[in-house]
């Protein structure tokens, strides 16, 4: 039976899809059968970030409506063995995802995979609710910025009350904090919330920190999960995140700025 992991944040544009693609690719690279499911009905984007947009034939809603079976809709990644994606539908019908439909698709995926990654839409509406409802673990993606941290706290409240685990009184959803777009230099100048500040406010375990990086845009331009770019800072940060999630102890990197000669002279 697979672990179901929701990647969520409340706020949009903080890096949920980037994180879902990188995390999914990392788990598959580590040898786990992994499927990444796009829950953002109407605003499909996971396919683009993972570089398989031209191979989409059927989608999540087609499967729920019985217009296609799961194997027809799943897209196998060509670079990483054991990695698949289930694209979201582009329909404008917000009720296209039904509770029973999502439950049935996730149960089937869970029986044939090791990890099911649910890429949540922004907001706290139906799509976001269904993406988190069946989760065992949650990656809460947060930027070091006031509105993102506040929305993450709101989402943490929902994870502890509006999920299957919460409703059935099971062990709670395991929450992991992923801070993205972290600019250590600005933190050093007191212009940006630090990791310590964010952890103190949200009081959940820190899984990893992804630095603000040109590699993320470059990777998305090319349709490659950024974790595949082994030499980049963001790619390495996501590699650490996957390893830590799988139980390996790794020190946090990218928490301090790389100082040039000039910076070292003036800050001692």
């Amino acid at each position: 039976m697979a672990r179901i992991v929701v990647v969520t944040s409340g706020k949009g544009g903080v890096g949920k899809t980037t994180t879902s693609a990188a995390f999914g690719a990392g788990l598959a690279r580590a040898g786990y059968r992994t499927v990444v499911v796009d829950f953002d009905v109407g605003l499909r984007n996971l396919d683009l970030i993972m570089g398989c947009e031209r191979r989409v034939v059927y989608d999540f809603v087609n499967v729920i409506n019985g217009e296609a079976n799961l194997n027809q809709a799943l897209i196998r990644d060509k670079r990483v063995d054991g990695l698949e994606i289930l694209p979201a539908s582009q329909t404008r019908d917000k009720d296209a995802l039904t509770f029973e439909g999502v439950q049935s698709v996730l149960e089937t995926l869970a029986s044939t995979h090791d990890y099911v990654i649910c890429d949540s839409p922004a907001g706290i509406e139906r799509g976001a609710h269904l993406a988190m409802y069946f989760a065992d673990d949650a990656l809460v993606v947060t930027n070091p910025e006031v509105s993102s941290v506040r929305d993450s706290d709101r989402v943490l409240g929902l994870l502890s009350s509006k999920t299957r685990r919460a409703e059935q009184g099971d062990e709670p959803v395991k929450e992991h904090l992923v801070v993205t777009r972290y600019a250590a230099a600005r933190v050093g100048k007191g212009e940006m919330l630090s990791i310590e500040d964010i952890c103190e406010i949200l009081s959940i375990d820190l899984l990893g920190v992804v630095p603000e990086s040109t590699a993320v845009l470059n990777a998305s331009n090319a349709g490659v999960p950024v974790i595949m770019e082994d030499k980049t800072d963001a790619g390495q940060a996501y590699d650490d995140i996957v390893s830590r999630y799988l139980g390996e102890a790794r020190d946090h990197r990218f928490l301090t700025e790389k100082k040039g000669l000039f910076g070292r002279l003036f800050k001692g």
Binding site: V149, D153, R154, L193, S194, D197, E200, I201
Partner: peptide, 16 residues
């Protein structure tokens, strides 16, 4: 500005 952000967040998050 970061410490201002932290103070404001602590207040609003506690209230919510």
């Amino acid at each position: 500005s970061a410490s201002l952000a932290k103070e404001r967040l602590q207040v609003i998050v506690a209230r919510e």
